[in-house]
Simulated assay, not measured.
Amino acid sequence: MSRLPAISLSPAWNPLHIAFVGAHDQVDEFETYLTLLVEGTEKLESDGMNLLSGLDLEKTNLLQQIWSSISTDRRAELSETLVELADDNPELEYESVFRLSLSDVDAQIRKASIKGLWDCEDRTIIAPIIQLMRTDEEEEVRSVATQLVGKFALQGELGKLLPVDQDLVINGLMESIYDPEETLEVRRRVVEALGPVSKSEVYDIIRDFYDDEDERLKGSALYAMGLSGDESWLDFIIDEMSNPSPLLRYESAHAAAELGSEEVVPELANLVEDVDSEVQWMAVTALGTIGGGHAVEILRKLLNHQDASIKQVATESLEQIETFSDPMKLMDRGPLFDDPDESVEEQSDS
């Protein structure tokens, strides 16, 4: 049997060669974009910034080499724009850029980088974020870092962190709360971050902040009460719903929503007619979060409210209950809408 002659593929048709050439072209395109960033002559466009998404190690190293050569204003604009792009386009991933810029000399860039890492659940960012929380020279950077550490504190309570990482998070927060040189702004963010941590020491810290005369600290204590999942705080939360301070009424409504107890629904009903529009909004939103028959009854009445914004929030809250609430809570009152084919919008127009 004769054999077919061996076919010798030219390099241009060799699949491996094509892959190599393609990868090389991508690097060339990336390097060209980096050059434009350094020169600062080109307007930042989304097409170019897409090249910064999902960077591999080689491209990350290239970016790191030229990062400080990009002007500060340009780096700041780039960082803030990448945060916005990532928020609007979940398929884009700029984690490598944000990790790199955590150590930028400019505070606004460090702050933007922390925000850019908000959805990152990689345990390797915990230590550098705690480092920023504890040692960054700028208060606003420490404050934003503390909020991200708080997200990891919640994950730890949900069993989503390794014990060693959970200890790192809690110890870092405790060091901050007891640091006599730390500012009020950062310390109140620490209290909020500690909210979900189920330790008796944390309960005492929240209570101490609640008893403080500064309403900002008191407000943060209320926020932490809501995150705690501990209904022993309900009486404190209900008391603050009649506080003269709009901030504390707002935070008490928010805390009530987080705890989710139907016991606070009558008090939230009073806040629906609060003189402060933000308190009104939070009260209506809280009713939608808590749900239950009484909340539905109140929200239905709000569909005829004279304030269009209240009607809109009530509509959204009813839709939220219909979608997510336990149907057993509403069995005694029937469906959210009297007619299964009737929408909330139709009710609000009646």
Rank of each mutant, 00 (worst) to 15 (best):
M1T: 14
I7G: 00
L9D: 06
S10Y: 11
P11M: 01
A12N: 12
W13C: 08
N14V: 05
N14E: 15
I18Q: 15
F20V: 01
V21C: 05
H24G: 07
D25Y: 11
D28L: 12
E29Q: 12
E29Y: 06
E29M: 05
F30R: 05
E31Q: 12
E31R: 10
E31P: 06
Y33Q: 08
Y33A: 11
L34R: 02
T35P: 09
L37A: 07
V38C: 04
E39W: 00
L44P: 10
L52Y: 05
L52W: 04
L52Q: 05
K59Y: 03
K59N: 07
T60N: 09
N61C: 02
S69E: 15
R75H: 12
A76K: 15
S79C: 08
E84S: 12
S113L: 03
D119F: 09
D119N: 14
D122S: 15
T124V: 12
T124F: 10
I126V: 15
P128V: 07
P128C: 09
I130V: 13
I130M: 04
I130N: 06
R134L: 15
D136G: 09
E139T: 10
T146G: 07
G150I: 02
F152R: 04
A153S: 09
A153K: 01
L154E: 14
L161H: 10
L162M: 08
D165M: 01
E175C: 07
S176I: 06
P180W: 07
E182Q: 14
L184H: 13
E185I: 09
E185G: 03
R188A: 01
L194E: 06
L194T: 04
P196W: 01
S198A: 10
S200H: 09
I206M: 01
R207L: 08
Y210W: 13
E213M: 09
D214S: 14
E215S: 14
A221V: 08
M225C: 12
G226C: 06
E231V: 10
S232P: 08
I237L: 00
I238C: 02
M241P: 05
S245R: 00
L248M: 01
R249V: 00
H254I: 00
A256Y: 03
A257Y: 01
L259G: 00
L259W: 00
E267V: 00
L268P: 03
A269F: 05
N270C: 06
V279N: 02
Q280K: 13
M282C: 08
T285K: 09
G288F: 06
G291E: 06
H294L: 03
A295D: 02
E297Q: 14
E297H: 13
Q306N: 12
K311T: 06
E316L: 05
E319C: 03
E319M: 08
I321H: 01
D326W: 04
G334P: 11
P335D: 15
P335N: 13
E342K: 13
